[in-house]
Every structure is written in C-alpha cells, then in structure tokens.
Amino acid sequence: MQDPRLENAGIDAWLVRLFERIDEANMPWLMALCDRCEQAFGEALVDLVPSYTTLLVHYRPQQLTASRARALLVDILADLAPDEAASTGETKEIPVWYDASVGPELVRLEYEKGLTRDEVIEIHSGHVYRVFALGFAPGFGFMGSVDPRLDTPRLATPRQRVPAGSVALAGRQTSAYPKVSPGGWNLLGRTPVTLFDPARERMSFLQVGDRVRFVAIGREAFERLGGDTTPVAAVQKVQS
C-alpha cells in the first residue's frame, strides 16, 4: 500500500484513496478498511462504497464533524493490515448459457480476435475473477481481470434494453446485468441466476471482494434453472 490520501467528498463524506492501479491485491486492504470503518464509526456510519482503489465513507454530520471523521480515518490507516480472511473468501459460480441468440457479441469476438467460439468460451470461463466494485445498478458487479485476448471496447451505440442475466464484457472487465437496462457491454451469454433481490437476506448475489467463476451450461440446463431464452434481438424489438 502506498501512502493513502484522504479527499473531501462533501459535508458528510471522505474518500480514502489507497491505490493507483486496479489489482486483485488491493481487495484484502479495502475489505479490512471497510471492517475497521464499521467498528470505528458505529452508529455515525451511513454508507461505505468500496471500489477498485478507493473507499467512500459517508457519515452522519449530526454526530461527527468533518475534522473528527477525518481523524478517525487517519487513526485507522495508521495501523491498517490486509484482511487475509477476505482474500481467501468463498468462490461463487455463475452458470452461463453461451449462445449467439443471447450473446450476440460472441460473433464479434470470434471475428475480431481470430478465435473459435469454443476458445472464446474457454478463455472467459477459464479464469477466477474478483469483484472489484458494485455499481451502475443494484447488484451489478465489476469483475476482472479478463484475459487480454478477449479485451474488447464497449459497443459504439449502447443497447436500449439489455436483458436481465446477460453476461457481458467490456475492456478487461466482465459482469452480468441483474435486470433489464440500457447498456453498452458486449454480450456473450445469459445466466439464470437472480443477481439482485431486495427480499433476499444479502440482496446481492455478488459482494465486493468475492471470487467468481463462470461455468458454461447448455440450453437444457439453462431452461431447467429457470433461464429466459428470449433472444436479445427480440427484446430490442419490444422496446421500439
């Protein structure tokens, strides 16, 4: 860890900048920082937003002045140690039906990268990813890092309606859309997993710091698990 920086983010928030680059090795430090903030701020804590290299700490100004909140963070950072438990946490599996009807950019990747369909699937599902951040939408996990052989920019024109469960890739990041929404990532397939459910105890299937493996499944298994086989193209037509 380099020297951390504390940046003001408003009357009730500080941003702790721990790192400069995206790296899986950042995660145990960020997880430890989250835990320590929960302990130190207690009731005065409103929200924590961990991301690749930073943690946004939002506190109650009714209970803490800006300078007192900053002092708490300085104290925490003075003896912060990485949370090794978080770095060996559970690995979650996301079953994916990789198919051009639900993942039209499989064709783009074959064409642009000179790979066969099977090679694309093998490379995407052959890596254990780390959840660096949740954002964009509830339960949308930013995962990395994708093999450089699949590194592909976002679509020039985002789709109006990306179907729920779409497994996607942008640059060297991958994710799955929890619900139908606009989006510009390259779609490779679809998962039957419900990624966000406010009625569930932990609500989000993915949590920051998780390790994730995508597992290729066939159409039959996808349908048996409750997956919706409506092609991406058909979902677009409903919109217009």
Partner: peptide
C-alpha cells in the same frame, strides 16, 4: 479515472 464512489452533489 478508475471508477470510485460518488457523493451527493459531486
């Protein structure tokens, strides 16, 4: 930049 948490009013 690398995406990071955004506060109200940013």
């Amino acid at each position: 930049m690398i995406s990071e948490g955004i506060a109200l009013g940013a």
